[in-house]
């Protein structure tokens, strides 16, 4: 039985986030920050924005737990998406086209969906009056798709990051074509090689 996805607030939230063109290269994150501040205001959560590198903001929403001295849980997602070859798309990649229960858009899998799922899960828990023991920090970081150099790699070295007192973190996985869910506890080391061909 098809649901009315057009009017579902969580689906609308995802589609609005997908419509923000946070596409590499040289992303301007202002629109993401405005959008995320609006989400935090709806949730009633305080926001901090850190900028270890100029114009590379990291936004953190915090839901304090009942025992805030305990190490916290980090829910991380990146705001940027990889570029598109628009001509190869059936629907415009930043329109968040919804058809037959399917949402098309750059970032639908990687990973704006996960960012909104964190937000919606917190919204539901709060609406039910539930309080959690540990503090949850929802971080939204820039430039993962170009290696995280100006983003997370800088942030983890800062005092601001240490102050979050994180004990455990979740971040993106990947889609699975079967009924199984994939989970990753490590990843490959990436070695970029430069091949120089001087010619004759």
């Amino acid at each position: 039985m098809p649901s009315d996805y057009e009017s579902d607030p969580a689906v609308s939230n995802l589609r609005n986030y997908l419509r923000i063109r946070s596409v590499q290269p040289n992303v301007n994150y202002d629109e993401c920050l405005t959008y995320l501040r609006g989400q935090a205001a709806e949730l009633g959560l305080p926001v901090q924005v850190f900028e270890p590198r100029p114009r590379k903001p990291i936004l953190v929403m915090t839901w304090e737990g009942l025992e805030p001295a305990l190490p916290s849980v980090l829910l991380n997602s990146h705001m940027d998406v990889v570029p598109v070859f628009e001509k190869s798309w059936t629907f415009p990649p930043f329109e968040a086209h919804l058809e037959n229960g399917v949402i098309y858009g750059r970032g639908a899998q990687d990973m704006k969906s996960v960012a909104i799922q964190y937000i919606e899960a917190v919204r539901r828990l709060k609406a039910e009056g539930i309080r959690l023991k540990r503090t949850l920090h929802l971080s939204f970081v820039p430039d993962e798709e170009i290696g995280g150099g100006p983003g997370m790699s800088q942030f983890v070295k800062t005092e601001d990051f240490k102050k979050l007192n994180i004990g455990f973190a979740l971040d993106e996985g990947i889609a699975s074509a079967t009924d199984e869910y994939l989970i990753f506890n490590a990843e490959r080391n990436i070695w970029h090689m430069t091949v120089v061909c001087p010619g004759k």
Binding site: Q109, V114, F168, A177, Y181, F184
Partner: peptide
């Protein structure tokens, strides 16, 4: 910090 990669997208 222990970290898991997980996106709830099967099928």
């Amino acid at each position: 910090i222990p970290a898991l990669g997980f996106s709830p997208m099967n099928d």
